[in-house]
């Protein structure tokens, strides 16, 4: 399910206390929410905390949602604000070493995929990480990503292209050395 196509009625139903709508929203957006938080915070534990808080907040703030056809952007803005609050209050544990082990931590899934993610988190800068992750996990358009990140669309586009180049280089470099 592509998160970009979240139905905004889910949020409207959620505002009326509809648990089934909450479940559906969660299922469609969990990995986008988690991935976006991870791209900002670079830390699994913090990303998990933010993911939890974001869904709780989304449920309680659903009454404030104004239907404008952008339910995912609304949800991701909640995620962004929670992450920024964490960064600002200094409560982010920058346990970078975790990423060195990302590949080994859990055995499931493809090692190659994890290496790509690891490279994305380590080689890209703050904005590039968010752009690349949002692009791959949500299917949102560059313009929509630009809105969420409050950046000009042109910047998002050029950063995206630059990031891909960096990533390709990093991954191929790694491949050679193995």
């Amino acid at each position: 399910m592509n998160a970009a196509y979240v139905d905004e009625n889910l949020i409207i139903r959620m505002a009326a206390g509809d648990g089934a709508a909450f479940k559906e929203l969660y299922e469609q957006t969990a990995s986008a929410v988690y991935g976006f938080a991870l791209s900002i915070l670079k830390n699994k534990h913090d990303a998990e905390d933010v993911m939890h808080d974001a869904f709780i907040k989304a449920y309680s703030a659903a009454v404030t949602y104004k239907p404008m056809g952008k339910p995912l952007a609304w949800l991701l803005t909640i995620v962004k604000n929670l992450c920024y609050t964490r960064i600002r209050t200094g409560s982010v544990c920058e346990d970078i070493s975790e990423y060195e082990d990302l590949v080994h931590i859990d055995e499931s899934g493809s090692v190659h995929d994890k290496i790509v993610l690891q490279e994305a988190l380590s080689k890209l800068d703050f904005e590039e990480r968010q752009i690349v992750i949002l692009h791959s996990l949500t299917g949102l358009k560059h313009r929509e990503i630009a809105d969420i990140l409050e950046l000009p669309t042109g910047t998002v586009l050029s950063k995206y292209n630059r990031s891909l180049k960096k990533l390709k280089k990093a991954i191929e470099g790694k491949g050679d050395s193995k």
Binding site: G19, K23, Y34, G35, K44, E48, D113, I133, S136, L137
Partner: peptide, 25 residues
Amino acid sequence: KINESLKAAVEEMTPNMLDALMSEL
């Protein structure tokens, strides 16, 4: 390919907290 890998890796890592959230709410 890069996008697919990123998506797969994040999906793999995403914790499942639906039940916990629903009971909390």
